[in-house]
Amino acid sequence: MKTRIQQLGLLAVFVGTLIIGCAPATKPDDAVVAEPGAQVGTVGGEGVAGASALQGMTVSYDRNAINDPKNVLSIKTIYFEFDSSDISEDDTEVLKHHGKYLSLHNDVKIRLEGHTDERGTREYNVALADRRAQAVKRLLLFQGASSAQITIISYGEEKPAALGHDEASWKLNRRAELVYE
């Protein structure tokens, strides 16, 4: 588990990178270049201790960026602790980029699917999964995405990603998925 200081350090390096504006790893398409705030860069950088999952990932908001496996926007699943809808700092960072992307492409629509693991009752889990998707939505809106771009569907425990009955499966199932439409 990373310490908070390491996470803050990562964040600082990340913000710095954005400001300095590293060479674009992906060539933005014309529409995006024309828009203000369409920064391109990489997350993290050399020398960040305690590797984050985000370290070294590309940041760009061109239209196809969501399909680039190296882009931070390729992270489309957010994981949660049991009976919680709190979003980790790393995932908050990921969602900032998705929010930004949506704000720059206001014709793009996204479906947020909330899920839980199988423990606890099914209908409570539907409400819990809804809360997870709502928490994701709030962060997207905060970055300028609009409500009209976002649909939420809560499946509760009905659509597990992993079928086992142990923590290894459960942690993969406590999730919100961002599905670009």
Binding site: E123, V126, A127, D130, I152, S154
Partner: peptide
């Protein structure tokens, strides 16, 4: 008969 299909969850 479809009774409830509101935005968000329709449950329980």
């Amino acid at each position: 008969v479809k009774m409830a299909a509101f935005k968000g969850i329709n449950s329980a």
